[in-house]
Computed example of a mutant assay.
Amino acid sequence: VGRQPLGHFVGPLAGHRAVVRVVDPPEIEVPAPWLVMLDRGPYDLSGELELLAGHAIDVLVTKDSGGSYTWPKMAAADQLGVPVVVVRRRAEVDGVETVPDAAAALAWVVSSSAVS
């Protein structure tokens, strides 16, 4: 789910083993039973199968990133019979414009700067 929302999981899972794969180090103190893996995708199916099986992962929690990076781990979980919990993105807020990618964000910033 990324390093930022990890704090939401500490209370209920602090005493349980967890494998946490994030790009940047967590900003919270991670419970002792947790294994933090700093890594950046993209990932492939064989690597995800190895990760899930090698760490005996029995539940996969992942965010709905809206991209293709999630699919190899989803396929691996499916092959291994591992249940998956997908954390949805926040609902859009009325009056707050969103864009689908970095190029659109740049275009929005440039057009907003010209208006100001």
Rank of each mutant, 00 (worst) to 15 (best):
S68A: 12
T98V: 12
K73C: 07
E50T: 14
D39A: 14
V99K: 09
P33N: 13
Y43I: 10
L106P: 00
G54E: 07
L45W: 10
H55D: 03
L49M: 06
E29D: 15
T98Q: 04
D24L: 12
E50I: 08
T70C: 10
V82Y: 04
L52R: 03
L35S: 14
S65Y: 05
D58I: 12
L35P: 05
L45Y: 12
L49K: 01
P26L: 05
L52W: 01
R90Y: 06
P42R: 10
P42D: 03
S65K: 04
D24V: 13
Y43P: 08
G41K: 04
A76V: 07
V84C: 01
V30H: 00
V99W: 03
A102V: 13
A56F: 02
V84Q: 07
D94F: 01
A77M: 13
L80M: 05
A56I: 06
T70R: 13
K63A: 12
V86P: 07
V99R: 10
P25R: 15
K73D: 02
V84R: 06
P26T: 06
P25I: 09
D44Y: 03
V30W: 12
P25A: 15
G95D: 01
S46P: 01
P72C: 09
A76I: 03
E29S: 08
L106T: 12
V59E: 13
V86F: 03
V93S: 01
D24C: 09
Y43N: 12
I57H: 08
W34K: 02
E48G: 05
W34H: 01
K63V: 01
G47T: 09
M74T: 09
P26G: 01
A91K: 14
D39P: 03
L38K: 05
E92I: 02
G54T: 12
E92Q: 14
T70W: 07
L49P: 03
P26Q: 08
Y43R: 10
E97Y: 02
S46E: 11
D64V: 01
G66S: 05
A105D: 04
A91Q: 11
V36K: 07
L60E: 10
A103P: 00
G47W: 11
R90F: 05
P100C: 08
E97H: 11
G67T: 02
R40K: 14
G41M: 00
